[in-house]
């Protein structure tokens, strides 16, 4: 076990974990931040998407040792009082079905809007391609991203 100081959602956390532990499991098992989900463990499904210095990354494919000084943001820290325009758009469109992939979808969408405030269809498709929704909510996700972008 090794000790790490990592910054998650603006707060510093001391964690003890093996260096090869994926950030995903440190967030969930050590810090109790359950919004970041386990889906595949190999960076192929996007359910564990978090922000690493503002960029969308897969928490399953990054070790706790990789985090260093980076600012990590999870769904829990996306916005104060859950008032991010994307969350509002997700409510308006009633996007989720099972809901499991949605935090990852929202984190990918948030990174997209941060860099591309008014994405077109192709830009949305490209940015969201890495996030699987097994229930097939893709059309609603796209509509919600466009709603949020228009605000």
């Amino acid at each position: 076990m090794a000790k790490y100081n990592i910054t998650v959602n603006g707060k510093k956390h001391k964690v003890e974990a093996d260096p090869d532990t994926p950030l995903l499991w440190v967030l969930r098992d050590n810090l109790g931040l359950y919004g970041t989900k386990y889906g595949c463990g190999i960076g192929e499904c996007g359910t564990c998407t978090i922000h690493y210095n503002g960029n969308a990354m897969r928490a399953c494919s990054m070790t706790v040792a990789d985090v260093g000084e980076a600012a990590i943001t999870t769904i829990e820290g996306l916005a104060e009082n859950a008032n991010h325009p994307l969350l509002q758009a997700w409510r308006e469109h009633d996007v989720p079905q099972c809901g499991y992939c949605q935090a990852g979808q929202i984190m990918s969408a948030a990174a997209l809007l941060a860099s591309t405030p008014s994405p077109d269809d192709e830009e949305i498709d490209a940015a969201m391609y890495s996030n699987i929704c097994r229930c097939g909510t893709y059309n609603k996700i796209k509509a919600a991203i466009k709603s949020a972008a228009s605000k």
Binding site: Y34, R91, P96, Q102, I106
Partner: peptide
């Protein structure tokens, strides 16, 4: 909805 959007432990 709120639990899903804010990452609450529901699964």
């Amino acid at each position: 909805m709120e639990a899903i959007l804010t990452g609450k432990p529901v699964f």
